[in-house]
Every structure is written in structure tokens, then in C-alpha cells.
């Protein structure tokens, strides 16, 4: 099996990410948040493949973060258990919410998700004695496989856990989307009538993908809470949901690699725009997204793919557009 040339640059970038704690520790904080958000955005990306946008996925981000925070305050305060608790809490919540929202499509789907997330946000704000209200909950640093670490080494470990999970979950999502169950889930976008006439319930197909998308958001949320050492209702606030959709579109709507490319670009722009243009960083981010939508609707991954194709055509010297590409999904969305 030959290594695809298109994957060379992403492989170099992954290798560079692995070296960040050693060679560029000043980027570690920004990138750890980017990787964790990227995992959560992966959840939004999965839903986009079925043609659905959720403006409420921060619900799963938040619920997993709080599940992790509660567990971290108990004797079972190990990182592995925290991640598992976040995953299970978000997947179960995803199943319950999915049973309701999977009946709807388009704007109704998006707004129902928003409604659920805002209900949860209100509960977090109002049940002060349980959730700490707007102040949130402090999350003690967990052990890792039973071993306690100081802050510095723990942050390095957490960085590599985030990178490892990003790669593992990214790989899993690619496999899922290419599998029969994932393909049936994606056909919700193009033809529910035919799906029904193939003996499949579009609602059930959507719920399966929805649970996966919720679980991914949950893993991102519990990692983020662990990295920040605190969880607040802002984890479940609508702005967080909007941010996830923003990043997914920026990276390339529906693209697995785009979830991480978008997240890294977003965090870098946000951090440095905030540092150098404190008052207008949101404006800069908005303008950045506007440019992407207007001139590169395939997002950052779309730009990379078109540059790669152009370079390849240039080196082959034919100057002709390639024909016979079997499916656009293979090219744009990997």
C-alpha cells in the first residue's frame, strides 16, 4: 500500500503537533484547546454529513464537562474514568435528546437543539447548590492511570492524550462514515424517501449518527474542563454551539480533517487577534469566515485540496482538468 501524496502535508502537521511541547511550548496552551475543541467540532461535522446543523451541541460539551467535574471530586478521579464518564453522559443524553430532535429537519432541528441546550444552561445557572451557578465548579487535577502528576507534566500528558484522541476519533469517524451504517446515516441528507423504501427508518439512521456526534462533543467537553480546571455554564451556552458550527464551516463543512484544521486556525486567529487587536478580534474572525464562505466554500481543507490538485496538474504538465473522479466525497471530505 502506498502512502497517498495528499496525506503527506497532514502527516507532517501531525508530527509537528507531536513536537510542540518540546520545540514550541508557547503554542501548547493554544493547541491543546484547539485539539479538544476539534474533537467536539468533529461531532458537529458528523451531523453536517447528514445535512443537519445543530445550534445546541454545547449541551453535550457541557454535560460531559460537568459529569467529569463531579467525578473528579470523588474517589474515582482518574483521567480515563473522567473521559469515559463524559462519553457515556453525553451519549446517553444524545440518545434521549435525539429521540425528540430526529423527528425534525433543517431550521426546526437546529432550533430544537438550541432549546435543549439553553434549558440545560438555565439548570446549571439556577441549581447553584449543585452546579455552583455562574461561578461553576472547580475541577481538581485527576490522576492518570492511578498516578498523580504536578501541573507541568500533567499538561504535557493531557496534550498528548488530546492529540491521541483527536487522531483516534478522527480515524474512527472516517471509518464510520465509510461504513454501511455511516453511509445510511448520510443519505438522510439526500433522499429520505428512498431510504424509507429501502426498509430503513430515516429517524433511526439519524439518531445513530446523533448519538455519535453527542459523544464526540462530550469527549471534547470533558477534556476541556480537565485542561481548564473549572467548568462553568458557559460550556453549555449557545455561543459555544455557534462557535462549533463556525469552526466546522471554517475547516470545511463535513470534513473530518477540517474539524481540526478549522479549530487550530480558529484558536490561533482568536488568540493572536485578541492579543494584537483586543477590541476587534471578533470582527476579524467574522471577516475571516466571510472570506472563506465567499471564496472558498470548501473551507480550509477545500483550499488545500484545490491547491494540491493545481500543483499536481502543474507538475504533470497536462494542464487539463482531471476527469473520471468517482465521487466528490472522496476528494473534498476526507
Amino acid at each position: 500500500m502506498t502512502f497517498p501524496r495528499r496525506a503527506i502535508l497532514p502527516a507532517i502537521l501531525v508530527a509537528a503537533l507531536a513536537l510542540v511541547p518540546i520545540l514550541a511550548p508557547f503554542l501548547q496552551v493554544v493547541l491543546i484547546f484547539a485539539l479538544m475543541k476539534g474533537i467536539a467540532v468533529l461531532g458537529v461535522t458528523v451531523l453536517l454529513r447528514a445535512g443537519q446543523v445543530s445550534f445546541g451541541h454545547a449541551l453535550f460539551f457541557g454535560i460531559a464537562a460537568y459529569a467529569g467535574a463531579f467525578l473528579a471530586a470523588s474517589p474515582f478521579d482518574d483521567l480515563v474514568l473522567l473521559v469515559l464518564a463524559g462519553l457515556v453522559a453525553s451519549a446517553v443524553t444524545g440518545l434521549v435528546v435525539g429521540l425528540f430532535v430526529a423527528r425534525y429537519r433543517g431550521i426546526f432541528f437546529a432550533m430544537l437543539n438550541l432549546a435543549f441546550s439553553m434549558i440545560f444552561w438555565s439548570i446549571l445557572e439556577k441549581f447553584y447548590y449543585l452546579t455552583g451557578g455562574a461561578d461553576g465548579l472547580r475541577q481538581p487535577r485527576p490522576t492518570v492511570l492511578g498516578m498523580a502528576f504536578e501541573r507541568g507534566p500533567f499538561e504535557d500528558i493531557l496534550y498528548y492524550v488530546a492529540l491521541g484522541l483527536a487522531l483516534l476519533l478522527g480515524w474512527f469517524v472516517i471509518r464510520f462514515l465509510g461504513s454501511p451504517i455511516g453511509q445510511l446515516f448520510q443519505t438522510v441528507k439526500t433522499n429520505e424517501t428512498r431510504l424509507e423504501y429501502l426498509g430503513i427508518s430515516p429517524r433511526v439512521a439519524l439518531i445513530k449518527g446523533y448519538v455519535l456526534s453527542a459523544a464526540l462533543c462530550g469527549v471534547g467537553g470533558v477534556l476541556m474542563a480537565t485542561a481548564q480546571g473549572i467548568v462553568t455554564p458557559s460550556y453549555a451556552y449557545w455561543v459555544r454551539s455557534g462557535e462549533m458550527v463556525f469552526i466546522a464551516v471554517l475547516g470545511g463543512a463535513g470534513s473530518v480533517a477540517g474539524a481540526f484544521a478549522g479549530s487550530i486556525a480558529y484558536e490561533l486567529v482568536r488568540t493572536y487577534a485578541a492579543a494584537f487587536a483586543g477590541d476587534i478580534w471578533q470582527l476579524l474572525l467574522g471577516a475571516f469566515l466571510l472570506v472563506i464562505i465567499l471564496f472558498a466554500p470548501g473551507g480550509l481543507v477545500g483550499i488545500y485540496n484545490s491547491l494540491f490538485d493545481r500543483a499536481r496538474r502543474g507538475t504533470s504538465g497536462s494542464g487539463k482538468r482531471e476527469t473520471g473522479v468517482p465521487a466528490k466525497s472522496a476528494e473534498v471530505r476526507s
Partner: peptide, 27 residues
């Protein structure tokens, strides 16, 4: 399924018929 090729449309039908749930099989 308009975002798929002819054979992919057929394979989606085969997927529906078989009811396979394994996410590690490539369609």
C-alpha cells in the same frame, strides 16, 4: 442518492438489506 455514484447507490441498498451495524466495514 444524488451525492453518490451508481454503484454506491446500489451498495447503500445492499447495506440497508443486510442490516450490518459494524462501523469498521468499508461499504
Amino acid at each position: 442518492f444524488t451525492e453518490h455514484t451508481a454503484i454506491e447507490n446500489m451498495l447503500i441498498a445492499a447495506s440497508a438489506r443486510s442490516g450490518r451495524q459494524n462501523p469498521f466495514i468499508d461499504m
